[in-house]
Amino acid sequence: MVERFEKEFEERFGGGCAPLAVGSGTDALHLAYLLAGIQAGDEVIAPVFTCTATNIPFLYMGATIRFADVEKGTLNIDVDHVKRLITPRTKAIVCVHYGGLPCNMDELHALAHEHGLIIIEDAAHALGATYKGKKIGEISHFTMYSFQAIKHVTTADGGMLLIKDRDLLEKAKRLRWFGIDRSAKQKGIWENDITEIGYKYQMNDMAAAMGIAGLEEFNDTLALRRRLLARYFDNLKDLDGVKCVGEGYTDREHAAWMMTIIAERRIELQAHLRANGIESGQVHYRNDRYSIFGGRQQGAFPNMDKLEDSYLVLPLHTKMNETHVDRICDVMKKGW
């Protein structure tokens, strides 16, 4: 079932990249970092604003994280800041497609080409997104997807890594399973030696079966979420004190995993929504707030500093319809 899920996922999203199903999106990222050759002391540029899963694997590896600021309009990685962070020790750039809106991949790849860097995409939010007609998953050296419980496709928990260099696939499979050549072992021709450190990162058949079922209904899921997101954008376009994150881009298609706004008096708005039975929250936080990453870097991220007290995630999920979006927006229009 795992092999079937990998094959079906590759056919739909891979664009010629090799698929590797694993136990979580974090597993996939760690394997991508290992396959990219990142070692202790190497520098990696990564978003300061993301789920901690993007950056924690670097702590396993002893790599040095150079956090990059966010773009004001998208909360994606700020390419101009990335440019200033590149040093001779930089090995890779990691980008996150926040909420499902693709990053500026042309500029990131231009930087990678100029400096000989590897691009790793954290596409946990972005299943089904496209950038200038290309699927997210067929553009960069490595692309990770998450199948955690509330993603577009879920395997309860799980992930997929798409690998541009197919010659790396066999090594990836060994790293996924304790460093063992599992195919050779099952054929009885394994030499019973382990020569590289591996992990228990495999996906099981029950999870893969859920993934296969999720792919069958994926088109409907994506279409619904995009309709809901568009409804939010339309309803809130003229509301004072609110700006929709990721609105108005025509060169990329949003995967509509999250609906995020920048709001004046966010705390008061959140309380107003809750008083009307509407849950909202921030979901992700700037990573430099956490002691494990060295703590807050004062003044290093002016865009994040400006936005961290004003971004808010509104409900967007498959149990909703357009009427629910209208009600949420009507509550907001009453003021807070």
Rank of each mutant, 00 (worst) to 15 (best):
residue 124 A to T: 03
residue 336 W to P: 01
residue 139 I to C: 07
residue 324 H to D: 15
residue 263 A to S: 15
residue 196 E to Q: 13
residue 46 A to W: 02
residue 66 R to K: 15
residue 187 K to Q: 12
residue 189 I to F: 01
residue 41 G to N: 03
residue 6 E to N: 06
residue 68 A to C: 04
residue 26 T to C: 06
residue 163 I to L: 10
residue 36 A to E: 03
residue 262 I to V: 14
residue 104 N to S: 11
residue 253 E to S: 12
residue 19 P to R: 10
residue 190 W to Q: 03
residue 190 W to A: 04
residue 17 C to D: 01
residue 273 L to Y: 04
residue 110 A to T: 05
residue 240 D to Q: 14
residue 226 R to A: 06
residue 237 K to R: 14
residue 1 M to D: 12
residue 80 D to N: 11
residue 228 L to A: 01
residue 302 P to Q: 12
residue 207 A to W: 00
residue 121 E to L: 11
residue 184 A to K: 12
residue 253 E to Y: 04
residue 3 E to V: 12
residue 335 G to N: 01
residue 336 W to G: 03
residue 314 L to E: 03
residue 47 P to H: 03
residue 118 I to V: 15
residue 153 V to D: 08
residue 208 A to G: 10
residue 210 M to I: 11
residue 89 R to A: 05
residue 295 G to N: 02
residue 307 L to G: 05
residue 283 V to S: 04
residue 78 D to P: 05
residue 209 A to M: 14
residue 313 V to D: 05
residue 272 H to Y: 05
residue 137 G to V: 10
residue 216 E to C: 00
residue 157 D to C: 04
residue 75 L to S: 00
residue 183 S to G: 09
residue 219 N to L: 08
residue 227 R to P: 06
residue 102 P to R: 08
residue 22 V to Y: 02
residue 20 L to R: 09
residue 48 V to T: 05
residue 225 R to G: 03
residue 144 M to E: 15
residue 45 I to K: 05
residue 176 R to M: 12
residue 277 G to S: 01
residue 181 D to M: 10
residue 155 T to Q: 11
residue 238 D to E: 13
residue 183 S to Y: 11
residue 250 T to K: 06
residue 326 D to C: 09
residue 8 E to P: 01
residue 29 L to S: 13
residue 103 C to H: 02
residue 85 L to S: 10
residue 262 I to L: 15
residue 114 E to Y: 01
residue 234 D to A: 14
residue 172 A to R: 04
residue 90 T to D: 05
residue 154 T to Q: 08
residue 231 R to A: 15
residue 243 K to T: 12
residue 267 I to E: 14
residue 29 L to K: 15
residue 75 L to G: 00
residue 89 R to P: 01
residue 243 K to E: 15
residue 97 H to V: 00
residue 10 E to C: 08
residue 11 E to I: 01
residue 158 G to A: 03
residue 85 L to N: 10
residue 122 D to R: 11
residue 153 V to R: 09
residue 227 R to T: 08
residue 284 H to Q: 11
residue 324 H to R: 13
residue 286 R to Y: 14
residue 222 L to G: 00
residue 86 I to H: 11
residue 266 R to T: 09
residue 265 R to D: 15
residue 101 L to G: 08
residue 322 E to Y: 04
residue 290 Y to W: 08
residue 6 E to G: 08
residue 147 F to A: 12
residue 150 I to A: 14
residue 235 N to S: 13
residue 226 R to P: 06
residue 178 F to K: 09
residue 81 H to I: 07
residue 47 P to I: 02
residue 310 S to K: 13
residue 217 E to W: 02
residue 55 N to C: 13
residue 330 D to G: 06
residue 111 L to T: 01
residue 150 I to K: 14
residue 7 K to W: 06
residue 189 I to H: 02
residue 120 I to M: 09
residue 235 N to E: 15
residue 293 F to Y: 14
residue 167 D to E: 14
residue 147 F to V: 11
residue 206 M to R: 14
residue 30 H to N: 07
residue 102 P to W: 04
residue 127 L to C: 03
residue 107 E to T: 01
residue 246 G to F: 00
residue 83 K to N: 07
residue 216 E to A: 07
residue 264 E to D: 15
residue 139 I to T: 12
residue 144 M to P: 06
residue 191 E to P: 04
residue 56 I to H: 01
residue 70 V to E: 04
residue 22 V to E: 09
residue 275 A to W: 04
